[in-house]
Design a protein around this nucleic acid. Sequence first.
DNA 1: AAAATATTTTAGTTTCGTCTAAATTTTAAT
DNA 2: ATTAAAATTTAGACGAAACTAAAATATTTT
Lengths: 219, 219
Amino acid sequence: MNFSTAEENYIKAIWRLQQSDANVTTNELAAELQTKPASVTDMLKRLSEKKLLHYAPYYGVTLTPEGKKLALNIIRKHRLWEFFLVEKLQFNWDVVHDIAEELEHVSSPELIERLDAFLGFPKADPHGDPIPDSKGRMTSTNNISLQQLSESQPAVVTGVGDQSSSLLELLRQKNIGIGTKLEIKQRHAFDGSVEIKIRNQPVINLSEQLAKNIFVQPQ
Amino acid sequence: MNFSTAEENYIKAIWRLQQSDANVTTNELAAELQTKPASVTDMLKRLSEKKLLHYAPYYGVTLTPEGKKLALNIIRKHRLWEFFLVEKLQFNWDVVHDIAEELEHVSSPELIERLDAFLGFPKADPHGDPIPDSKGRMTSTNNISLQQLSESQPAVVTGVGDQSSSLLELLRQKNIGIGTKLEIKQRHAFDGSVEIKIRNQPVINLSEQLAKNIFVQPQ
DNA sequence: AAAATATTTTAGTTTCGTCTAAATTTTAAT
DNA sequence: ATTAAAATTTAGACGAAACTAAAATATTTT
C-alpha cells in the first residue's frame, strides 16, 4: 500500500499527539497540521476507510496497528535523513527538520535500508530522538526533563522537546547539545528557572520553559 | 517560485524531447509522460501562464530561458542523487533511476549544494550523463555512438542512450560500463551488429540496436 | 435540566491534475 | 482543391485535499 504525502503527515501527527494523549481530537489535529477542523474530518474519514485508524465521530481517533506501523516507518525515515544531513552534509541540527519533512516521503524501502547501513545503523537522530528499526522497534527513552532533575545530580543531555529552530538555536547559543554533561546548581522558586553548570563554562541560567524542553539522563 | 512535481516532470520531459527535436508536440509529450493528449494541453496552458514555456496552440511548445533553467536544475538534482545512490549506497546503476525520480523533487537548494560538495563535485552520473552545475552549465558531450565508431579504433564508453533497466542490465551482463575500453573488431553488414573486444575478455557480439545506445569517446 | 458555549461534522466550493468524448484545426491524400 | 485522416483542443466530469459557512452534537455553566 502506498500513501500520499498528506495522508502520511496526518498519520505522523496523530502518532505524535497520541504519545501524550491517548485520544486525539479534531481540533488538536487541525492545530498541529496548520489546517481547518473541517479538512481534518474529511481526511479522518478517508484514513478510516483505509484502516489506518479508528474514527468515532465527535469522539476522536486512535491509530490501528497498521497506522502505527506506518507512523513509525515515516518517523524512521525522517530521523535517518536528519542524521544523514547533520553527519554527512554538515548541516546544523536546527535546520534539518524541514528538509527531512520532504525526504521522509520518498517511498523506496531499499533506499532506507541502505541509508541506515551507510550511516552505521544510528540509534538516535541529531536531536536525541530514537530511530525505530525496520520493524518499528525503538529503544525506549526513560529520560526525564531537566526541570525534574535534582540539584547537584550530574546528567547528560539526551534529547529536546521539539524541533523548532528557535529552541535549537537557543541551545546552540548556550553550548548545549546532545551529550552535553551538566548539573543543576540552584533552582529559583520564583520563576522556575534553574542555574546550571557545564564543565569549563560559567554557570548559566535557563528559564523553566527551556528546562522543560531539555531531556537528560542522570549519570 | 516553487513548482509541483507534476509541473517539474513536464518541464523535464519537454527539455529531453527538445534535445533531439526543437519543436515538441502534444502527442510526443503524452507518450513520454504516459498520459493523455488532453491532459498535456491543460498543463501546457498552465506552464505557459507561469512563463516556463512558449505555447502555440496546435503548433507545439518550446521552453523559455526560465523553463530551461528549471529543467537543468531538476536534471542536476536527479543526476547528483543517482551518483549518491551508486557511489555511497552501493546501488546497481540499473535501479537508481526511479528512486532519483522521487528525490529530484525535494526542493532545498542548500541540500543540493552540500550534496554536490559531499560527493566531490562529480562531473557525470553513473550512466555517463553530465551533471549541470548550479548555474545550469554542462560539459558538452562530444561523443559518438558505438555504432559510428570505426573499426580497430580504441574507445572508452562514456554514456548510454537511456536509463531503462533492460538496457542497463544487459550491459552489466556483458561487462560493459562507464569507462570500459573497447574496440570494434568487425562489423556485419547483414544486421548491423558489431564484434567488439574488451581487454582480457573474449570477443562478443552486440546488436545494432544495442551499439546505437552505447556512447563512446575515441582514444 | 435548560441555556450557553465549544467542538465537530455536513454541505457546498475551489484548485490541481487527470480523464473521456466531442469539436476543431492541421496535414496528407486523392 | 476537396476530402480523409491525424493531431490537438474544448467541454464537462472526477478524485484529492483544501476551504467557508451553516448545522449538529457535546460539554459547561448556571
